[in-house]
Nucleic acid binder design. Structure first.
Length: 423
RNA sequence: GGAGAGAUGUCUGAGUGGUCGAAAGAGAUGCUCUCGAAAAGCAUUAUCCGGGAAACCGGAUCGAGGGUUCGAAUCCCUCUCUCUCCGCCA
């Protein structure tokens, strides 16, 4: 949620920032400031009427009940009461109207974020080299299924399309990655969280996924949603709470599966583990002061790339153009690993500074040393999405004989250096 | 799942229709005292919206939403959550 005052005071600046990620026809700031003025007016009317009404309280308490004077006052006050109720209703409507217009606006991109969509994403770092193979390589499914690590057919039988089942060493390898990430985050002083997976609607709203993405999440019968990412949970830990400045930054990470309907459908080549209704992800999260958040974003980026480095995969880091950032993000980096079979880079981590966007939606503040209450800044970063990394690991570490070398960092967790057929 | 009790400010907790944004205590902060600290005394101590340069003024907020009433923290209804007892169960 954007700060309405910012829109009122700096309309042109806000407009210019939004134009980096939206087309002019898709938003209208004048409508918003009009709605704000309308609300202000309705509030004034209501406040005045209420003040008048409350002014009679003293008098009423002193007049004898049932006396002529009492009866006379009642008649007058009944009318006033009606007016107050009308004004209250109008105020409520004006407030709702303003909120409705305001909450659909995405965050303002940072100054150093370029405008436009995907095509303007800027690769800022490229690490390692595309692996060379002296043989015809297989895709991750062929390797994984060949080694008994993944069973797509049976997963589909029990769950429907676009679900995967990890079996045997496949499950162990997936879990090894999670373990590896967890141990690194703990080393870095991040606090581990295992949150609920079913969340109330309000949580989706605070994280910024609702109302926009209501068709992309799974809903269960009593009105809760299955979280599409641990971020949704981690962004709600302190909802409606007041934190202390001394406690910031708060650094957390959580592991959950991510459940997504992927309502848009699939591209033909996104087979196997690339886009699933359920995938595993370790998510990092920080609550900071406004002054701390930019450094925190860089810290999270470094943590994410360190993990990919540890796996020995080739990857690049992109800074996303405004329209490619998720709605809440002011600035986003993507870490994309190289997939040898598809000959393309795929996102395994998205690192975003949402600044106070989620904090406004969830009313999350901190008390400064001076005693002011200010909105916290919040940052989220995958650290990392393991199911997609599995694709890169399977393809990058495949051997000509169909076996798989286990990346060094994972060997202690898998208990093997190599995965071979039938062994 | 059944029965009951409850939800008030940073915390504990009083408040059953008007003078209540809310007693009292704790905590915190400031001042006095002190070489310093403790103790003691005094003072201050919610957030949001609107107006104002400011002092300050008006309004909202006592779990959430609705209702009754001229008037609601207080009465009624619904919901959420917490606690106790019983049942059931990883």
């Amino acid at each position: 949620m954007l700060d309405i005052k910012r829109i009122v005071e700096d309309k042109e600046v806000v407009k210019k920032a939004l134009l980096k990620r939206m087309e002019e026809k898709d938003f209208n700031l004048d409508e918003i400031t009009d709605a704000y003025d309308e609300r202000k007016e309705k509030q004034q009317e209501y406040d005045n009427l209420r003040a008048k009404q409350k002014g009679f309280n003293d008098q009423m308490s002193k007049v004898e009940k049932g006396s002529d004077e009492f009866k006379k006052l009642i008649v007058e006050l009944k009318n006033l009461s009606e007016e107050v109720k009308e004004a209250e209703e109008e105020l409520r409507e004006a407030e709702e109207e303003l909120k409705k217009k305001l909450e659909v606006l995405p965050n303002l991109p940072d100054d150093d974020v370029v405008g436009g969509g995907k095509e303007n994403n800027r690769v800022i770092r490229e690490i390692g080299e595309k692996p060379e193979f002296g043989f015809k390589i297989k895709d991750h499914l062929e390797i994984g299924e060949g080694l008994g690590m993944i069973d797509m057919d049976r997963a589909t039988k029990m769950a429907g399309s676009n679900f995967a089942m990890y079996t045997g060493l496949g499950a162990q390898l997936e879990w090894a990655m999670i373990n590896y990430f967890i141990s690194e985050h703990i080393k870095d002083g991040y606090k581990m969280i295992l949150p609920p997976h079913l969340l109330v609607e309000e949580s989706g709203y605070t994280a910024g996924q609702l109302p926009k993405f209501k068709d992309d999440v799974y809903w269960v019968q009593d009105g809760s949603m299955l979280l599409p990412t641990a971020e949704t949970a981690l962004a709600n830990i302190y909802r409606n709470e007041l934190l202390n400045e001394a406690d910031l930054p708060i650094k957390l990470f959580g592991y959950t599966p991510c459940y997504r309907r992927e309502a848009g459908g699939y591209r033909a080549n996104e087979r196997g583990l690339l886009r699933m209704h359920q995938f595993n992800k370790v998510e990092m999260f920080q609550y900071t002061t406004p002054e701390q958040s930019e450094a925190a974003l860089e810290e999270l980026l470094n943590k994410a790339t360190n993990l990919v480095d540890g796996l020995g995969l080739h990857y690049r880091v992109s800074q996303l153009a405004a329209a490619d950032c998720s709605a809440g993000a002011a600035k986003t980096y993507d870490v994309e690993v190289w997939l040898p079979y598809l000959q393309t880079y795929y996102e395994v981590s998205s690192i975003s500074n949402v600044r106070d966007y989620q904090a406004r939606r969830g009313n999350i503040k901190y008390k400064t040393g001076e005693g002011d209450n200010k909105y916290v800044h919040m940052l989220n970063a995958s650290g990392l999405a393991t199911s997609r990394l599995m694709v890169a690991v399977l393809e990058t570490y495949q051997n000509e004989d169909g076996s798989l070398t286990v990346p060094k960092a994972l060997q202690q967790f898998v208990g093997k250096e190599k995965i071979e057929k039938g062994k």
